[in-house]
């Protein structure tokens, strides 16, 4: 396998900290840039993300043209807080409302394409405790400075908040190491060079994003990589080291459900690429057991693995943004 991509397409955020240079490149290329924060009950972190991005990348350096929050139905104060700090806030169910309603991160990202204006869209998870504007500008850096790069992906050290008070300096990325990396090694060895394929922070040109389908849930990160790789090759992708990201710890069962969705997405893709042929249909339920009183009880999670088609195939979108299908 050729490891050259890792050397040529891997960057460190510090390489792009000259924000004036990025603004100059943005203006020269006449690009608009949108930041999208998908949310579901993120009242503890959403304000911080909006405030820091607005302060640093809108007020001080005009890199971002809009900050958009797309919400999956929060029941806490996420929406009120986001509005109060000046983000454009949308409920996913109200975007393209005539379509069947789905709930999930991928759904929010897909619908963000419809309501944003940018030529480049940055997606950041909304639960980043140590948010810093490098999370956005570092992802923009390769897109603005290198013409051949069209999609960027974050990687970082992942300390985990183990309880309200303490953080553990290393860890995280368990689904990556136990699921994705073995699968990539088996089917797409080149893609193992992507250090954290499941990171929730990435940015890409609209011209790519509108031409690929979006699984509605956790599988979206995997599918974006596989589809971009399949259509445009690995060279359009870059990865950027963001140093450190503190995120919430998830229990093993939650990670299990995440792995289930990712596996479904992956099998779907490799079958479509004719790398394998499944002789059976995959089931739609993740089954986990819990001990209640003196017996085991099954928890069933129905995960159908629905996908949204490429946004360019939606007529309302083409009309609104004046795009040709």
């Amino acid at each position: 396998m050729n490891h050259s991509w890792l050397k040529t397409n891997t960057f460190h955020h510090s390489e792009f900290k000259d924000l004036e240079k990025l603004v100059e490149a943005k203006n020269r290329k006449q690009l608009k840039i949108s930041l999208c924060l998908p949310t579901l009950n993120e009242e503890k972190t959403i304000a911080k993300e909006i405030i820091i991005m607005k302060s640093e990348l809108m007020t001080r350096f005009p890199l971002l043209d809009e900050i958009v929050v797309v919400d999956s139905g929060s029941t806490d104060h996420t929406l009120d807080i986001a509005k109060s700090y000046g983000a454009d806030v949308y409920e996913a169910k109200n975007i393209l409302p005539h379509l069947e309603n789905f709930t999930g991160k991928g759904e929010n990202l897909w619908k963000a394409l419809h309501i944003t204006q940018g030529d480049i869209i940055i997606y950041l998870d909304a639960d980043i405790k140590n948010i810093h504007h490098r999370f956005a500008y570092a992802l923009l850096g390769p897109l603005l400075m290198f013409d051949h790069i069209k999609y960027t992906k974050a990687f970082y050290d992942r300390p985990i908040a183990i309880d309200r008070k303490k953080i553990r300096p290393t860890g995280g990325g368990r689904v990556t190491e136990l699921i994705i990396r073995p699968l990539f090694s088996l089917f797409f060895p080149e893609l193992t060079q992507i250090i954290q394929p499941l990171s929730g922070e990435y940015a890409g040109f609209r011209s790519l994003m509108e031409n690929i389908s979006f699984p509605i849930g956790y599988g979206v990160e995997t599918s974006l990589i596989l589809d971009i790789y399949e259509k445009w090759g690995l060279d359009v992708i870059a990865q950027v080291d963001l140093d450190r990201r503190v995120h919430r710890n998830q229990d093993t069962k939650a990670l299990g459900r995440m792995a289930f969705v990712i596996l479904k997405t992956f099998f779907n893709r490799i079958e479509r690429l004719e790398k394998i042929k499944l002789n059976t249909e995959l089931f739609h339920e993740m089954i986990q057991y819990k001990l209640t009183a003196d017996e085991y009880e099954a928890d069933l999670y129905k995960i159908t693995g629905d996908e949204r088609p490429p946004m360019i195939s939606i007529p309302e979108y083409c009309k609104k943004l004046n795009r040709q299908p």
């Binding site: 911080k48 908040a161 953080i167």
Partner: peptide, 11 residues
């Protein structure tokens, strides 16, 4: 330093 220095911003 090992305390989680996380700030929560509300309205």
């Amino acid at each position: 330093a090992d305390i989680d220095h996380n700030f929560i911003i509300r309205e």
